[in-house]
Design a protein around this nucleic acid. Sequence first.
DNA 1: TATGAATGAGCCTTCATTCAT
DNA 2: GATGAATGAAGGCTCATTCAT
Lengths: 194, 194, 194, 194
Amino acid sequence: MTSKKMNKFELILDAAVKVFAENGYHGSQVSKIAKEAGVADGTIYLYFKNKEDILVSLFRERLGELVGKFEASARESATADEALRRICELHYTELEQNPTLAYVTQIELRQSSLELRKAIGQALKPYIDLIENVLVKGMDEGTFRAGTDVKLTRLLIFGAMDEVVTSWLISGRKYSLSGQIENTVSFFLRALKP
Amino acid sequence: MTSKKMNKFELILDAAVKVFAENGYHGSQVSKIAKEAGVADGTIYLYFKNKEDILVSLFRERLGELVGKFEASARESATADEALRRICELHYTELEQNPTLAYVTQIELRQSSLELRKAIGQALKPYIDLIENVLVKGMDEGTFRAGTDVKLTRLLIFGAMDEVVTSWLISGRKYSLSGQIENTVSFFLRALKP
Amino acid sequence: MTSKKMNKFELILDAAVKVFAENGYHGSQVSKIAKEAGVADGTIYLYFKNKEDILVSLFRERLGELVGKFEASARESATADEALRRICELHYTELEQNPTLAYVTQIELRQSSLELRKAIGQALKPYIDLIENVLVKGMDEGTFRAGTDVKLTRLLIFGAMDEVVTSWLISGRKYSLSGQIENTVSFFLRALKP
Amino acid sequence: MTSKKMNKFELILDAAVKVFAENGYHGSQVSKIAKEAGVADGTIYLYFKNKEDILVSLFRERLGELVGKFEASARESATADEALRRICELHYTELEQNPTLAYVTQIELRQSSLELRKAIGQALKPYIDLIENVLVKGMDEGTFRAGTDVKLTRLLIFGAMDEVVTSWLISGRKYSLSGQIENTVSFFLRALKP
DNA sequence: TATGAATGAGCCTTCATTCAT
DNA sequence: GATGAATGAAGGCTCATTCAT
């Protein structure tokens, strides 16, 4: 069994994703997560400081992986255009293929204190930075217009994609999210052209 | 005094904005709102179904006013370009001048159940529709590229602005939000040009 | 019904004496006290800050009454001898007639944090002071030996009586406590004679 | 090193005295005692039945030593007067020189169930008996008044000294405890003289 | 309408104890 | 004997909501 070797930390995190997605953060009792993970309530507290810490860890771990993929993907891209396209592709397809995670990150993780929101912001920082790097690279290449306000633009791009994902989730995932890649990227590239 | 005539409903709503902004939704006890409003706890329940209903009403009422302004502003605009610029102007300046409301709508209102998120979506619908109308108008005028996916683009535009506002709030309002209007609008217009 | 007029504060305090005496402080759940008092759990917290506050209030209220009696009794005494006798009489008879209160004050109230021990000490202060005053009076009268260390002696007297009461309780109240008055007082008076 | 030979039982007991003194009984987790002793949590249960048993053992062992000293000291005394003086001397000086033990026996050990209180009473029995023997000896010698109620008097004497020690501890040990020996003993002897 | 005292369901967390290794 | 990860029962407290006045 891999479950034997799979450490409790990951086990609990997996259970938490499921329970949070089904019941929301405030609707998820710690005991419910413990039950789902097949451990005792107290065991949770051997691996997490408290309930909120489960949420933060969830974000850090799972989003950390994603950000890693983003970085790898961007690195492989020859041009800034290509990099931006890949970022959007990954953003949409990863969340589309992982609707439970999408649900937790887009809906549940937002239901938290300012304290936590800042922690989340911290975890997202590398992603936002990645977008910024692509913008700088594009300007260096001459692909993107010189004088672009990168601090602002990275927010516009991230916010735009983020809203598309949330809207897709709230609609009940009635349409294809990856189907929006082409138009989304075109929108960004036109806006960025010199 | 208008306070004599000002009905309890508005009185409680005003108190709620203040209390929610100071303590967050989950940190705001109904009794605290009642105290701030100068009414008894029970009185709240003569005007609102439950605690969540205060939040929903708050959103509907206060955002309703805002959306009214948006519509009026858009109607006065001769061109779609102009209309889009005014929307962004209003979006940023209104929230910049009303940081308490901004805080509640951008941060606190998001800390809520899917149920409520849908209600909020409902309240925002007219605003999203307004953006859509401007896009259609622009295509009709020939100012915006034909074949623009309006359903997607309205989300990109709203999401982009929304993220900029949230980021500004979380940063502690250290810079001017209205100072971002020019670059934000340029970004959108370039993206939309034929 | 007096229970209609009897305020909840006293009602809860009475219930607490009973429950504490039966189960000890740590064995007494707040819910058990509430049930005994015939109120809801939450009601307790309208009258007391927390569980420990019930104990402190209990001490302050009930012991306050006792100390009042002691003071009245001492005031009526013509001589210091007489006053000391009355103090011992009251001390033993009041607790003998009120074994539940005796149990709580001698056994349960001691099972508490240093914090609480200090609060209890504060509540007992007037009683200790009263003994001190009697000692001073006796020295003035010439009944008690001059140069008696009142700070020490008041402790010796209080501690001696306190131990007798506790021992009587732990023994299961198998003998008469008031039957010890004569010998106890004689012991003190002999020790105090010039 | 004696620590090599010093068995775990004593090791844990020493750790317990320290931890109890610092945190109180209810504030002392078994794991904290284990850590202080440098053993695993589970090891505790190889030497003690449960948490309360640590407290009882502590009392029995450490107080047993003390009582041994008391007995030796009393045996060496020629007269009952002398014996009583030595008992008081030892009582005050031992606890004064060992404030940690004093704290545990006077304050923490009292924070316990009736069950435990009885066990403590049992451990103190030899000490109380010792006082009783001295009283009997004094009566035989003719030093103490005939007809003294020894069962009562031993309690008065023990309770008086006990209160002095507790009061000294609660005051923060601001004055000398051994400085109270002379007056305490005089008080007892006067009370006991024929 | 308005009040606010009373309700009581609900839940996170602690920690003494066990047991497979 | 020794370990320490795992257990899971237990309980103090909060607060949205009700209802007699």
